[in-house]
Design a protein around this nucleic acid. Sequence first.
DNA 1: CTTAAATCATTCACAGTATAAACGATTAGA
DNA 2: TCTAATCGTTTATACTGTGAATGATTTAAG
Lengths: 150, 150
Amino acid sequence: MPNMNDAKWTETLSFRLSTLGVLVADQYAEALAVHDLKPKHVGLLEVLGSGLAGSQLEIAKLMRVAPSLVVSLADHLESMGAIERLRDPADRRRQILSLTSEGRDLLAECTAKALVLDAKVAAELTSSQHAALSEALGRLAASYGLPVRK
Amino acid sequence: MPNMNDAKWTETLSFRLSTLGVLVADQYAEALAVHDLKPKHVGLLEVLGSGLAGSQLEIAKLMRVAPSLVVSLADHLESMGAIERLRDPADRRRQILSLTSEGRDLLAECTAKALVLDAKVAAELTSSQHAALSEALGRLAASYGLPVRK
DNA sequence: CTTAAATCATTCACAGTATAAACGATTAGA
DNA sequence: TCTAATCGTTTATACTGTGAATGATTTAAG
């Protein structure tokens, strides 16, 4: 006998959450392409912009990413002049990364792109749906605990 | 002057939607690992299970994926005995894919894993939050139109 | 002090995922 | 009939990310 709940699964929370989430993430990635950036580059910019920053190793932990990846992300951002590397005088193994003013501008532009995308998503919803979605996602975000771009 | 809405962005719908979505997608992928499957393998099984199936090219279009990827996904599933390839007698270029009974069982197990994951997500929410989230995501899913796993 | 172990950034080799282009078999159309 | 298009497959390749090895520096032990 064929199983009974084929159709149901695509209406599941986790299915929709993951498919829509990946879709939005892809759209965001696409919007960033004009700046020659990937989401993780922006993630690094955001970490630096939030002031939580520090050494590359700390950034790697914050972003839950291999330290060697931080190197290549930072290389790219540095080559475009968005960030600076500065040896920590107190511990000359460490590289302290910081935003340049160009980097701050770039981050602002990326944020703007994100807000545009956000508006497109919001446009599909009534304001009460928007509020409810926001609250529920906020709850989930709090319990899963991740203010970091993947 | 530093820009004003640094903190705000991480509370955005699209940010939370994409980060949480990717997170859930990752957890789902992890849950599938015991079956030696990736989400896209299951996506293919789901397409076949839904009866929309047909030739590999049609499947590729449904899944929005390169035809050559369907080949390798199908190779893997065929090697585990989950699907069968059958030349279309009417057009012997086409391969018609179909689920074997083992394939149906496998799909059911994957669906079960997904429901477990779904329950974990739901456990973080009140029932009214759950309902609201479900409705809002449903609306978005409808307007973006994608009942297909990514 | 001096030497051994740990730490940070970097490089290098590699695995995994996906695509696009080239190819052979088959079918459709002029 | 023979030319062009289609389907599946193979092959080459790009891309993202990881982990292990390396070199520079710092910390800890004796």
